[in-house]
Simulated assay, not measured.
Amino acid sequence: MIRVAIAGAYGRMGREVTKTVWNADDMELIGATDSKGEGVDVGSLIEAGEIGVLIEKDLEELILRTRPDVLIDFTIPQAVYRNIMTCLNHGVRPVVGTSGLSQEKIQEIIDVSQSLGVGGLIAPNFAIGAILMMKFASEAVRHFPHVEIIELHHDQKVDAPSGTSIKTAETIIEQRGDFEQGSVNEFENITGVRGGKLTGGIRIHSVRLPGLVAHQEVIFGGLGQTLTIRHDSTTRESFMPGVLLGIRKVVHLERVVYGLDKLLFD
C-alpha cells in the first residue's frame, strides 16, 4: 500500500484527489492539510462519512507523525515551493499539480531531489489528453512554425498564464527554436492585448471566466491554412487518472521530473 497525504485537501481539486485516493485499492489516505477547514474530517467532504483523517495546518508536523510515502500538492503558488522542499528533506515524494513555480525554482527542486535520491513529479497538467495535445503540437510545429496559444480557465485561478501553456510553449520551442513571428511594425493600442511573449517568440493569451474548468488551444498558421489543436477538461475527474499514475510511478524514481509526459513517453 502506498501511504498518501494531501496538501490542499479542502479545495475543489483537493477534494477530488481525496476521493480518488480513498477509493484506490493500492493506496492508504493517511493525512490532509489545508489553510482552511482545520479539524474537518475529509470524509465529510467526499460523501464518505467520517474516516478519521482530519485536516491539519502544519505540513511538517503531519509528515513527521504519519510518515507518508507520497504527498499530493494542490495548494497555492505562494506555498508550493516550501511544501516541496519540506517533503524532499523528509524523504517524502511530492506529486505536484500546483502551478506558479518559476523555471529556476523547478530546476533547483530537481537538483535537490537528485542529490537526496528522492523521486517526485511536478505536472503542469494531469489530464492525459492535455499531454497528448502537447505532443501533437511539438510535431505540428515542424511544419507550422507560426503559432500562438490561448488558455482558458475558471475565474478563481490566481496565476496566469497556466503551467500547461508554459509547458506547451517550452515543448514547441524545443522543436522550433527561437522564431520571431508577426509584423516587425506591430504595436499595441492597449498594453497586453497581444498576450504575453515567451523567450522563443511564442505568445500566450489567458482567459478567466466562470463556467470554465481548464481548456487550451494551440493555433498554427500557414500559407492559406490554419491548424488548431484543442484540449478541454470539463470536469476535475479528467485529471485523476494522471494523478494516480503519478503516485504509482514516483515511488520508483530517484529524482523529481517535470511533466507527466516524462512518465508516459520516456
Rank of each mutant, 00 (worst) to 15 (best):
E56I: 04
E56W: 00
K57S: 14
K57Y: 03
K57M: 07
D58I: 04
D58F: 05
D58N: 14
L59C: 06
L59R: 02
E60F: 05
E60C: 13
E60M: 06
E60H: 04
E60K: 12
E61K: 12
E61I: 07
E61D: 11
L62E: 06
L62Q: 08
L62S: 09
I63E: 01
I63H: 00
I63D: 01
I63L: 02
L64S: 09
L64G: 08
R65P: 14
T66H: 03
T66I: 07
T66F: 02
T66K: 04
R67I: 00
R67G: 00
R67A: 03
R67W: 00
R67C: 03
D69R: 10
D69L: 05
V70D: 01
L71C: 11
I72T: 11
I72D: 01
I72A: 10
I72P: 04
D73W: 11
D73F: 09
F74M: 07
F74W: 14
F74D: 01
F74P: 01
T75H: 09
T75A: 12
T75G: 12
I76D: 08
I76Q: 14
P77I: 14
P77T: 12
Q78Y: 15
Q78E: 10
A79D: 09
V80Y: 04
V80R: 10
V80K: 05
Y81Q: 06
Y81K: 11
Y81M: 09
Y81P: 09
R82Q: 10
R82W: 06
R82G: 15
R82V: 06
N83M: 06
N83S: 08
N83Y: 09
I84F: 02
I84K: 04
I84T: 03
M85K: 12
M85N: 06
M85C: 08
T86R: 12
C87S: 11
C87P: 03
C87Y: 01
L88A: 11
L88V: 02
L88C: 11
N89K: 10
N89V: 02
H90F: 14
H90W: 05
H90C: 10
G91F: 03
G91H: 05
G91D: 04
G91T: 04
V92D: 00
V92A: 01
V92N: 02
R93P: 05
R93K: 11
P94R: 00
P94N: 02
P94V: 00
V95E: 01
V96N: 13
V96Y: 13
V96C: 09
V96D: 13
V96Q: 07
G97W: 04
G97H: 15
T98G: 03
T98Y: 01
T98W: 01
S99T: 11
S99M: 15
S99W: 10
G100N: 15
G100I: 06
G100L: 13
L101Y: 06
S102C: 08
Q103C: 15
Q103G: 08
Q103S: 09
Q103D: 10
Q103P: 10
Q103L: 15
Q103W: 13
E104T: 10
E104F: 09
E104Y: 07
E104K: 13
K105R: 07
I106K: 07
I106T: 09
I106W: 04
I106S: 04
Q107D: 13
Q107W: 13
E108Q: 07
